[in-house]
Simulated scan of single mutants.
Amino acid sequence: MKSRRTFLKQMGVVSAGLPLVGPQLFSFNPQQSPANEKVLRVALMGLGGYAKRVAEAMKDCKRAKVTGLISGTPEKLKEWGALYNVPEKNRYNYQNFDSIKNNPDIDAVYVITPNSLHHNHTIRAARAGKHVICEKPMAISVKEGQEMVEACKKAGVHLLVGYRMRFEPHTLEAVRMRKEGELGAIKFFQGLSGFRIGNPNQWRLNKELAGGGALMDIGIYAINGCRYMVGEEPIWVTAQETKTDPVKFKAGVDETILFQFGFKSGATASCLSTYNMNYLDRFFLNGERGFIEMQPATGYGPIRARSNKGEINAPVVVHQTVQIDEMAAIILDGKKPEIPVDGEVGLQDLRIIEAIYKAVETGKKIPL
Rank of each mutant, 00 (worst) to 15 (best):
V161P: 05
K358E: 15
Q348K: 15
N115V: 12
A55L: 03
T6H: 10
Y221N: 14
L192K: 02
G49K: 03
A128R: 03
N120V: 03
C134Y: 05
A267H: 00
V247W: 03
R63P: 05
D254C: 01
K336N: 06
E88R: 07
A155S: 10
L172N: 09
V149Q: 05
I123Y: 06
R4E: 15
A329P: 00
M165Y: 14
Y221I: 04
Q190G: 11
Y275G: 07
V86F: 13
F249W: 04
V86G: 01
D333I: 10
M58Y: 03
N224L: 02
N29R: 01
R127S: 12
F284H: 15
Q10P: 04
I353N: 10
R91G: 01
P367E: 11
A43L: 09
Q95G: 11
Q31R: 00
A267V: 11
V149M: 09
K65D: 09
K336C: 11
Y84M: 07
H119T: 02
T73N: 14
G231E: 12
I133L: 08
M216Q: 05
F249E: 04
I330V: 14
N224C: 02
I235Y: 03
G181A: 07
L18R: 13
Q146T: 06
P19V: 03
G252Q: 13
K364T: 04
R306Q: 11
V253N: 01
S265Y: 02
